[in-house]
Every structure is written in C-alpha cells, then in structure tokens.
C-alpha cells in the first residue's frame, strides 16, 4: 500500500474517532464511571470547601474576597479539565510503556505523540474537574467586575490555553523519563498536585521562595495568579513585574518546546533500549 501523509483534516477525524471509542468504553461501565466522576468532583471540592469555610469567617485575605479567590481557582480547574480532555495519554504515558502499548503505536503509520494523545480520554476526570471549574467560573465571572469585552475575552482564552500547555509540559517531563525506564509518576503527582493546590491561593500569600518556585520551577503562577491579576488588579501585584500578566502563552510555548526536545531524545533512547525495566 502506498503511504501518503495524513492531512490535518484526516488526523482530526481520526481523533474524533478515538474519542468516540473512548466514550463508548466509558459508557460500558456507566454506573461505575458515574460514581468515579462524582468522587473526583467531591475530592476536588475539598479545597474549595476549606477556602469557603475560611472566607465565610474572615471575609477577605490580603484584600482578596471570596469571589475573587474562586475566580482565580477556576483557572486551575478549567485548564486542567481541558488538559485532561485533550492529553490524557500524556498523563498515563508510563503505563503505556509498561504494558507495551507504545510498541503497538510504533508499528502504525502515524506519529507517536499523535497516537499517545489521541488514544485516551479520561472522561471522568474531565467532567469531575470541569464541573468544579464551571461552577466556580459561573458563580464569579459576573461579580468580580470584569468587563467582558472582545479584548478581555481573547486574553481569557489565550491565558487558559497557555495554562493548558504549561500543565501539559509539566506532565510530559515526567513521561519522558519513562523512555529511560525511570518511573517518576509518584514524584510527579506529589510535585504537580501540591503545587497546583498552592496555586489555588494568590502567590502573594507565600514567602518569596514559594513564589519563586511557582514562577520559575513549576510555573503555576502563570496558570492562575497572573491571569486573574490581569482582570482584578489587586494591590499585591505591585511586587511582581507587570509583564508577567501577558506571559502565560509565552511560558507555555517555551516550556513545550524544551520538553518536546527532551521527548525526541527520550524516544531515540527508547528505540535503542526497549522497555527494559518493565
């Protein structure tokens, strides 16, 4: 059979096909998946509940009120929800190496990263996180005083997508280690989910070292804090460079580029060593 390159449209159609099959898998266990989704939702609501309980008591922290804090938090959930919807495979990558699924992708006439990304969709996590994000957003977007004009809407979308790319890159770093048969999943979850939890509060609450970490090492500040400051202009922004407000997509793109180079390196190593540890 003659090999033609796949066109963008064909790839998109194929992705849809994959998502449909994933949906079918999810619906195979409707009952169980429903409760899993509910559990994810409840689990994620814990930090929201704690924030709610504190703020009903103290009204505002460092000038931040409840609706503003929730607006900030909504960035984390919405971008994570999009990340999971599009890139579940990157989260589960170590498992693909472990089970040999990766070898199967390598004998198909499609790009590896494309297949890793398309092959899985975790609908439970998408909906569980997404529901929290949507609830937070809908209950605050009106009351935090944002003029939803064209410019702001464009900014919002770009910031959200930038946040998605940043989180994708963070997950992908850990995936790359799987190519060398080094398991970093536990460590990754620890770093990722804790950082994410911190980023649920304005980073100005934290001592300098944590702020620096959330800007330079695990740049969650660009996922939630800076985008919400763009809209809210709280006084605590003054200690940070103003340009940070616009950097989210840039940070995302730079991170992804670097991680992609790392990924190519890893793939090269994988094809010379196979899935040896497992």
């Amino acid at each position: 059979m003659e090999h033609k390159k796949f066109s963008k449209l064909e790839l998109l159609k194929l992705s849809l096909k994959y998502s449909k099959l994933n949906l079918k898998c999810t619906l195979e266990y409707k009952f169980d998946r429903f409760f899993t989704t509910l559990a994810v939702f409840v689990r994620e609501m814990v930090s929201i509940a704690v924030m709610y309980l504190i703020l009903t008591r103290v009204i505002s922290i460092k000038g931040w009120q409840m609706n503003e804090m929730f607006f900030l938090y909504s960035f984390l959930f919405l971008s994570y929800c999009i990340f999971i919807f599009l890139f579940t495979g990157i989260r589960d990558f170590d498992n693909m190496v472990y089970t040999g699924e990766l070898d199967r992708y390598l004998i198909r006439p499609l790009g590896l990263l494309y297949q890793v990304i398309s092959a899985r969709v975790d609908y439970c996590a998408t909906i569980g996180h997404g529901a929290v994000g949507v609830i937070l957003f809908l209950s605050t977007y009106n009351s935090v005083g944002i003029d939803w004009n064209f410019r702001n809407i464009v900014y919002y979308i770009l910031a959200l997508l930038g946040g998605v790319i940043i989180q994708t890159s963070l997950f992908m770093v850990s995936s790359c280690f799987s190519f060398w048969a080094v398991r970093t999943t536990n460590l990754r979850n620890l770093i990722f989910f804790n950082s994410r939890r911190f980023a649920g509060y304005p980073i100005s609450f934290y001592p300098g070292i944590v702020q620096k970490m959330l800007i330079f090492a695990v740049p969650f500040a660009f996922v939630s804090y800076f985008p919400s400051e763009y809209f809210l202009h709280k006084p605590d922004l003054s200690v940070f460079w103003h340009g940070c407000l616009y950097l989210t997509p840039v940070v995302g793109i730079i991170m992804f580029t670097l991680v992609y180079i790392f990924w190519r390196l890893g793939l090269k190593s994988y094809s010379s060593s196979g899935n040896s540890m497992y």
Binding site: F35, R43, V46
Partner: peptide, 21 residues
Amino acid sequence: YTFSLVTIKDALVMVLSGALI
C-alpha cells in the same frame, strides 16, 4: 470498585475531622 466510596470518604474526613482547618 471502591475507588468512589473511598475517595468520597477521604474528602469528608479531610473537611469534617479538622485535618485541614
């Protein structure tokens, strides 16, 4: 599977037992 029940239990314990606040 008990994932859902365990997770919901954990969430309740976290908020209501004073583990976080």
